[in-house]
């Protein structure tokens, strides 16, 4: 994002570096911004920024967990702003000149490395907490719903003799099918507690079972016998 002037001091190459800066977010989000990569290859400073950002992104994806909440990134950004590392483009030229002097450059490099490792640790900690939460949710799928379903099933068993045999058989088949789903989801979650899809299907199966039982009990009160 810089080029050397005649006296060796850094100054901004306004067009290319500003374009790089403007297109960087899109490029990192998967947009087609080939100019970003080309400029990074030509400009050492911009190339370093891009490689650092790619390193952070790569490190976070290796953890194979969900996106951290927006507040984590907001806190990182707030910290960088508070430390003066994020400034408006107009202010940037002055601090870059200062930044390139030896002592601040070393301090900033150390800070950037520290930030990268701190962020990685924060992310790792976040993912650990998220995984623990998943396990807890998997074990505690709405006990109130499970209790209601259990009571409704007992009522159905007690009154199903009054139902039309064809209808009774249909309900029993449905309940058997849903019980199979519930068991399979429980088994899967026991092995893979981070599997959101299994948890989603488990809750869905319990909810559906409640609806089936509700329908059967309503019908048992009418003429459907």
């Amino acid at each position: 994002m810089q080029e050397q002037g005649g006296n060796g001091a850094a100054h901004w190459a306004s067009a290319a570096c500003r374009d790089f800066d403007a297109q960087l977010s899109d490029y990192l989000e998967g947009g087609d911004r080939s100019a970003v990569a080309m400029h990074a290859a030509e400009c050492a400073f911009c190339g370093t920024i891009l490689s650092d950002l790619l390193l952070v992104r790569s490190a976070s994806t290796e953890l194979e967990e969900d996106e951290p909440p927006a507040r984590v990134w907001a806190n990182v950004r707030a910290t960088l702003v508070a430390e003066g590392l994020i400034r408006s483009p107009r202010e940037r030229r002055r601090w870059v000149e200062w930044l390139l002097s030896p002592i601040p450059a070393a301090a900033v490099t150390a800070f950037v490395l520290l930030s990268v490792f701190t962020t990685r640790n924060l992310l790792h900690r976040y993912h650990q907490l998220a995984a623990q939460k998943v396990v807890r949710l998997a074990v505690d799928v709405d006990p109130g719903l499970q209790q209601s379903v259990s009571e409704m099933e007992a009522a159905f068993r007690a009154h199903s003799a009054h139902l039309n045999p064809t209808i009774k058989r249909a309900y029993e088949e449905d309940l058997e099918s849903l019980n199979g789903e519930i068991k399979e989801c429980h088994d899967t979650l026991a092995r893979q507690p981070d599997d959101n899809l299994s948890r989603e299907y488990l809750v869905s199966a319990y909810t559906e079972k409640a609806r089936v039982l509700e329908s059967a009990l309503e019908l048992g009160d009418g003429d459907g016998r």
């Binding site: 998967g30 969900d66 996106e67 899967t188 981070d194 599997d195 899809l197």
Partner: peptide, 27 residues
């Protein structure tokens, strides 16, 4: 589209969509 244990056959060409994440790491 996601199938945990079944086959998935999509014959459309997909363009990446930022911020769209799979609901499960499995399947």
């Amino acid at each position: 589209a996601h199938s945990l244990r079944g086959k998935l056959d999509n014959q459309f060409k997909l363009n990446p969509k930022p911020r769209l994440h799979s609901r499960s790491l499995h399947g």
